[in-house]
Simulated assay, not measured.
Amino acid sequence: MSASHVFIVDEVPELEDASDLVMVTVLEGFLDAGGAAQSALSHLLETDQGRVVATFEIDAFYDYRARRPPMTFAEDHYEDYQAPRLVCRLVHDAAGVPFLLLHGPEPDTHWEAFCAAVRTVVEHFGVSLVVSWGAVPMAVPHTRPVMITHHGNRPELVTRSSMWRGAIRIPASALALLELRLGEWGHAATGFVAHVPHYLAQVDYPLSAIPLLTAAAEATGLQWDLTGLHARAAARADDIATQVAESAEVRDVVAGLEQQYDAFHRPDDDERLPLAEDGELPTGDELGAQFERFLADLDEGDRDDKGR
C-alpha cells in the first residue's frame, strides 16, 4: 500500500487485534541536546530491531546537499553508500507488548506531506497514542536530576505540571507540527523534552535519555529494561566528574547553576525556567575557554573509548 509518500506493509497479523497501540517517534537533526532522544532510540533498538512495517519516501523529504550521506571510496571505486532511511518498525517492550517506532532524519522539506504520511500510518494501524522525544540545552547543572517538559495536544494527556509561565516563540520542528496536526485530525499525541545542561549539549549525555524512557513508560504502560543505559550514564557521569574536578572555574559555574536550579524549585508563583541564553546566567565569555577545554577533554575520552 502506498499513500502520502509512505509505503505500508499490507498485512501485519500481530497488530490486527492490538489495542491501545503506541507509536514512539524519534527524529534526528533538531531538538536533541546531548543526544538524549537518539540514546533512548539506540537503547530500544539494541533490544529489538523489530520489523519495518512502513517506509517513508525519503527523497520527498531529505536535502542531500545539506546533510550528505556517507559513502566509501575504495582505491578506485565507490561503494558502501549509507542511504538515509525514515521508517516505522514494529518492536516489542520488555513484556512482549508490541508498539511502533518511527525513526530517521527530520524532514528538511514538505513537513505537511510528512505529517499526512504519518497520519496514514496512524490510521492504518489504529494507533491510539503518538509519543515523541526531544531534548533542549538549558542553564541547569549536571549534578541535579534531569527535568522534563511534558506537552500534548489534549489537556488530559499532560500529566506533569508545566514549569513554564506564559507563552514563548520557538523555532518549529517537524515533530511539533506533527503533534499539532494530529490533534486537528482527532489523534492523541504527547511528548517529553529533557532539559540538558547547556555545556553538555554537544556531547553524548545518556543520562538525559533515562527520564525520557521513564516518562514514556508512565504515559503508555510500556516497559523497558534500562540497566544498560544506567551503566552508560554512570560511566559518563564519572568522566564529567573527573573533568569538573580538574577546573576550579568550571566548578564555580556548576555551583552557580546549582544555586539557580534550587532557587527555581522553591514554591513561587513567579518562578520560571532559565533558558541557556538568559543574560544573567554565570556563563559569560570569561568562562568560554574553560568549557571548550572541558568539552574537548570529554570528546577525547569518547574517541579513546571507541578505539579500545
Rank of each mutant, 00 (worst) to 15 (best):
G104R: 01
P105V: 00
P105H: 01
E106R: 10
D108M: 08
D108R: 08
D108N: 15
W111A: 09
W111T: 10
W111Y: 05
A113G: 13
A113R: 12
F114A: 02
C115S: 14
A117D: 05
A117K: 04
A117Y: 13
V118Y: 04
R119F: 09
V121P: 02
V122H: 14
H124S: 15
H124I: 08
F125R: 00
F125E: 03
G126V: 15
G126E: 09
V127Y: 09
S128H: 10
L129V: 02
V131F: 08
V131S: 00
V131Y: 13
V131E: 01
V131K: 00
V131D: 03
W133C: 00
W133K: 07
W133P: 05
G134N: 06
G134K: 07
A135Y: 06
A135M: 09
A135D: 12
A135N: 11
A135K: 12
A135I: 10
V136M: 15
P137S: 10
M138A: 13
A139V: 03
A139P: 05
A139K: 09
A139I: 04
V140S: 08
V140I: 12
V140C: 10
V140K: 11
P141R: 04
H142A: 13
H142Q: 04
T143M: 06
T143P: 02
V146Q: 07
I148H: 05
T149G: 00
T149M: 08
T149C: 06
T149W: 06
T149L: 06
T149S: 11
T149V: 09
H150E: 12
H150L: 00
G152W: 03
N153W: 09
N153P: 02
N153R: 04
R154L: 01
E156N: 05
E156K: 03
E156V: 01
E156W: 11
L157Y: 09
L157Q: 04
V158N: 08
V158R: 13
S161N: 07
S162V: 02
S162Y: 12
W164L: 12
R165L: 08
G166H: 03
I168A: 12
I168H: 07
I168D: 06
I168G: 01
R169D: 14
R169N: 11
I170M: 15
I170F: 14
I170G: 03
I170V: 15
P171F: 13
A174G: 08
L175D: 04
A176S: 14
A176F: 15
L177A: 12
L177G: 05
L178S: 01
E179W: 07
E179Q: 14
